[in-house]
């Protein structure tokens, strides 16, 4: 039962993710992104990581994709004719090729990559206490760095959205 559910959600995630890339219509693409995120949340539930599943739904599916849709609708972004390949910057072409190569290699060698033993791996996402404890001990540095990044982004938003016309506005 759990295996079947896992496979169904995995399939849903991949198909929806392909839909995000292939759709010309930006609203359709955002809805595919939503479906894909719901699929990933389903995968987390199948892996007993309920906390991650619901955080993913709350933050990404509930708020961020809604903002994407908001922007897409506000700008009325219709799909465009894709640019011919020689107009895409060389760096972007190389990056895309490298990403696809890495993805394919890891897909075909996944059986041979040494994965950690499941029995000894702590289930961090399963309990609130365990998760919070790890966040504030082992992973404290990444959390702090992310906090700074968010702070910088917030300052950027304030600076961009506030119109500075003279010295009076700063006071």
């Amino acid at each position: 039962m759990a295996d079947v559910l896992f496979n169904v959600f995995a399939l849903l995630t991949v198909i929806a993710a392909a839909g995000v890339v292939l759709n010309r219509n930006a609203v359709n693409a955002s809805m595919c992104l939503l479906l894909s995120l719901v699929g990933v949340a389903g995968l987390f539930v199948a892996l007993d990581a309920y906390l991650l599943a619901f955080l993913l739904l709350l933050v990404y599916a509930g708020a961020i994709v809604a903002l994407f849709l908001f922007i897409v609708m506000l700008l009325d972004a219709k799909g465009d004719v894709p640019a011919p390949i020689h107009k895409i910057p060389l760096l972007a072409r190389i990056m895309a090729f490298a990403l696809v190569t890495v993805g394919l290699i890891s897909f075909f060698t996944r059986g041979r990559i040494v994965s950690p033993d499941l029995a000894t791996t702590p289930a961090l996402g399963s309990s609130l206490k365990l998760y919070a404890y790890q966040l504030f001990t082992i992973y404290l540095l990444p959390v702090q760095i992310l906090g700074f990044l968010l702070l910088i982004a917030m300052l950027g938003v304030i600076v961009l959205s506030k119109k500075f016309e003279g010295m009076d506005d700063i006071k």
Partner: peptide, 20 residues
């Protein structure tokens, strides 16, 4: 479920899509 309220918040936040 142990996650209780978080689940309620997460799922009910999807209700916005119907309006949009």
């Amino acid at each position: 479920v142990d996650i209780g309220l978080l689940a309620v918040f997460a799922v009910s936040s999807l209700g916005v899509y119907s309006l949009i």
